[in-house]
Nucleic acid binder design. Sequence first.
DNA 1: CCCAGTGATGACACAGTGTGTCATGAGTGC
DNA 2: GCACTCATGACACACTGTGTCATCACTGGG
Lengths: 200, 200
Amino acid sequence: MAQCAITCYRRPVARWDPGAEERLKRAALELYLERGYDNVTVTHIAERAGLTRRSYFRYFPDKREVLFAGSERLPPALAEAVRAADPDAAPLAAVLDALARVGAELVEQVDGATERRAVIDASPELQERERTKTAAITAAIRDALKQRQVNAETAELVAQLATVAFQNAFRHWIEAEGRASFGSCLHTVTDELRTALAGT
Amino acid sequence: MAQCAITCYRRPVARWDPGAEERLKRAALELYLERGYDNVTVTHIAERAGLTRRSYFRYFPDKREVLFAGSERLPPALAEAVRAADPDAAPLAAVLDALARVGAELVEQVDGATERRAVIDASPELQERERTKTAAITAAIRDALKQRQVNAETAELVAQLATVAFQNAFRHWIEAEGRASFGSCLHTVTDELRTALAGT
DNA sequence: CCCAGTGATGACACAGTGTGTCATGAGTGC
DNA sequence: GCACTCATGACACACTGTGTCATCACTGGG
């Protein structure tokens, strides 16, 4: 998962100072925390990472993406988990099962989640980008459901419902600061949703 | 609603060419349709409206907002409707009732909705902004529910759930091209959500 | 009729984003 | 040793968004 032997002899990775992308990510997070997103320029980030502004844009397409690096792996992982779920399960059951699996792995990898949250919560522009990442999750789930022969309308609604559950479960998990598993957070949220919708 | 007698004698509105904001909105929609959002500059929009770039930014804070003018009225309208709903109704029931009322008025006012949809669907940047508008709706509903003494957690989930219903109902209504009322679209979506969540 | 005030607009300058293009220079393989 | 690759730097450019000041039409009072 982490390192592949084949890539190692093909490309020793090291040339110039290695880890430029990692340095940019750390520099950006630090600066956004110190001065606030609006008061940081790409030039600041690049200089702290020992690069030029032009090089920053070779790693990240804009000033926002540096905070969301790696997030592009979540949608395909969720889609794969949905496709791999019990073929006989109802749509929402299949997705919730997939969310529990992937979410459990996700919370293991999360690093600097608290700082990232603080930075995003302080910037409308970053919140806007975060919603795009959420939308990508919904789209991936919806498409995976369609591959399970779920009709388009149901796939759309179930994907949106599941995304609501996923987001809120993740928020609960962060707030619990280790005192709850992701699976239990997801279960709690699902029950609350069921209660809200049934009690009408 | 449209014109207030008091404002009329206080301010005859007309000075220079009147309707600059309206001209900007039309010019922007036209140009975005003709050339695509990315190939249009604010200068183009301003010139077609007979103004300068600087004046554009006196009416709209950025290049995107011109397509969402007026959307800031929806969240407070929904919040007011939620607060005005039957005090004894369950949270989701109260919100769905409010959505049905406000939505019914909304669909009367919608103008150029088809073109706007086409433009937004063609531009990730505009979709990103649209999600911000949706988030404002969710926030308004959530806060209105809190004022009804609904606990914070339930308010958050019900608001998100209701927003999902609202969005999808609106999409159905557009696709029905006048063959369905907004209320019936909302009812259909709510039933589908109930089925998806219950059938687990 | 003139005149000060008000408010929308234009003109200009400037910091910052994002991109295209070419040069440089370190490491790789033959 | 030599061509090749490729991350990086240097530079130019179009565009966004904002601050500031001038202009100019229209208003209301004298």
